[in-house]
Design a protein around this nucleic acid. Structure first.
Lengths: 187, 187
DNA sequence: AAATCTATAGACCGGTCGGTCTAGTCTGTT
DNA sequence: AACAGACTAGACCGACCGGTCTATAGATTT
């Protein structure tokens, strides 16, 4: 038998990746189980509220992961221009490495479930809230005046999310760089 | 029997709205048929390639509809600031009137199917291409220099798409206005 | 009126969905 | 050794999925 807690982790990570690639309704529990090697009983033991709980926790996990990656990138950037470019590069690389399969790990699920599941919507809201806060702090660090930081963070996150989606649809990451370059010009 | 071509139209319109609200995988053909009152045989008579064709044509229809609405709004706007505000208002109103059910009619389907169905991805790409072009022309009309119009159109569309998604997740349209106000400042 | 074409009508198909249930197998405690 | 709780294992369920098929009704042509 696998070590304590190991199965839950593996199922959650597998689910997070599949939700990112295929969305909520496009991902079947049987697929998650087949890929993670767990039986159905384990899934409903660890996630008694079923698919909704699995998706909520997947979104939360992805939210934390991106937050951490964002923080790393931001800390390593000498200024805002470089920071925004690095964030764009990060997402663009993920896109290219997965043949445009892995976009934003939250967006697809968010759009699919925002109106249908309050639980998942709240998880997505929390994730985006974390990113907004991280961006706001980063902007302050880059010399953006205090009263400009919050709206600018919203603009940056919106534009990034939109560009990430356009890039998937166009199968071309150049729109990401085009957008981050213009955002950098605002600092 | 219904007049010629009337059933096809009704099915297509119903499908477009359901895809907009629930996405591709979240919308069942039986649901489309029940709501439009058409039998299954009619669906596969008018859309012999099935669900993919129905989604592609729905996206194309929504693309045209939004293009036209965009053109109207743009023509009525005295300047760029007013134009961007009007575009934001348009989407925000749709969101509020549908209790945050109807966001971008293309985005959800686009994210769900970009990697899985080349046909649908191409339809989404075409729709966004039309919007980009419409925006580029509008920006030119508002005095944006020629070489700035294309990248700025990409930024505006990206930011709008992102803001529209954030607004659904937050169940609050204010981020849309926050974003369009800042975009207007760029003109 | 016969034939033909367009479109409707819905029963039916195998497969998959999310979810439940019971049985069994570990591990740590006493 | 006996027991309890944690966890695995997968058969099984009704519902629904997208898609196919045959039959038929209405309009159009000959």
């Amino acid at each position: 038998m696998a070590p304590r807690g190991e199965t839950r982790e593996r199922v959650l990570r597998t689910a997070a990746e599949l939700f990112q690639r295929q969305g909520y309704h496009g991902t079947g529990l049987n697929q998650v189980l087949a890929r993670s090697g767990a039986p159905k009983g384990s899934l409903y033991f660890h996630f008694p509220e079923g698919k909704e709980q699995l998706a909520s926790e997947s979104v939360a996990l992805s939210g934390r992961t991106v937050s951490e990656a964002l923080a790393e990138v931001v800390l390593a950037a000498p200024d805002g221009r470089a920071g925004l470019a690095a964030i764009g590069d990060h997402f663009a690389r993920n896109l290219l490495e997965s043949d445009f399969g892995k976009g934003c790990p939250v967006a697809t699920v968010a759009l699919e479930t925002a109106a249908g599941s309050e639980t998942i919507r709240a998880a997505c809201d929390t994730a985006y809230g974390q990113w907004l806060d991280g961006l706001r702090v980063a902007l302050l660090g880059w010399g953006v005046p205090g009263e400009r930081a919050e709206p600018l963070a919203a603009l940056v996150l919106s534009a990034l999310q939109g560009a990430l989606m356009l890039a998937r649809v166009q199968r071309d990451v150049s729109v990401i760089h085009q957008v981050t370059r213009q955002l950098a010009g605002l600092l």
